[in-house]
């Protein structure tokens, strides 16, 4: 088992993804506990969710908050709300992967590895996707 050689970039990617995943999950559950117990105010009331969860996102948000979310402003403007704290936990997962790709990219750059080109392409696509709502790009997969 110990004879198996694992690339440093793989180890770094694994560690970073793990750290962000655990942090994201802790924040998600913390937000949900604060939400259900009412310890912090909610952005969308529990009863409103149950009443409207059969509607599409546009109708749902119009019914519960009178808005149609198109970017991250509905999250960034309500960071003190319990349910939004949970959403922040979700956001940590893709952020972790982006940082992990950037770190592996740094490892490849240091040793002039040809796979660096592919790591750069993936990093650019990920960053563009994250910035998508502000630059009009919508990446599906």
């Amino acid at each position: 088992m110990s004879a198996v050689k694992i690339d440093t970039a793989n180890k770094i990617y694994a560690r970073i993804v793990e750290i962000f995943t655990i942090a994201g999950l802790v924040i998600m559950i913390l937000g949900l506990v604060l939400y259900i117990t009412g310890a912090l105010p909610a952005y969308v009331k529990l009863t409103d969710i149950v009443k409207n969860w059969n509607k599409n996102t546009e109708k749902f948000w119009k019914s519960v908050k009178g808005i149609v979310p198109k970017d991250y402003s509905w999250i960034l403007g309500n960071l003190d709300k319990a349910d939004i704290i949970s959403v922040l936990g979700v956001i940590l997962l893709p952020i972790g992967v982006i940082i992990a790709v950037l770190c592996s990219l740094a490892v490849y750059a240091k040793r002039f590895d040809r796979i660096l080109v592919m790591a750069i392409v993936v990093a650019i696509i990920m960053i563009l996707a994250a910035a998508g709502p502000y630059i009009g790009l919508r990446v599906h997969h």
Binding site: L32, F60, P69, K70, V87, V90, H141
Partner: peptide, 30 residues
């Protein structure tokens, strides 16, 4: 991990992520 990290943003921005549904699903999956 990489393709979903790319796709997640559009769902987050459009408000398709509701913690009441996502958190139990995520913990079961975890």
């Amino acid at each position: 991990t990489m393709t979903d990290a790319t796709a997640a943003w559009i769902y987050i921005a459009s408000g398709a992520i509701i913690p009441l549904l996502v958190v139990p699903a995520v913990f079961g999956m975890y």
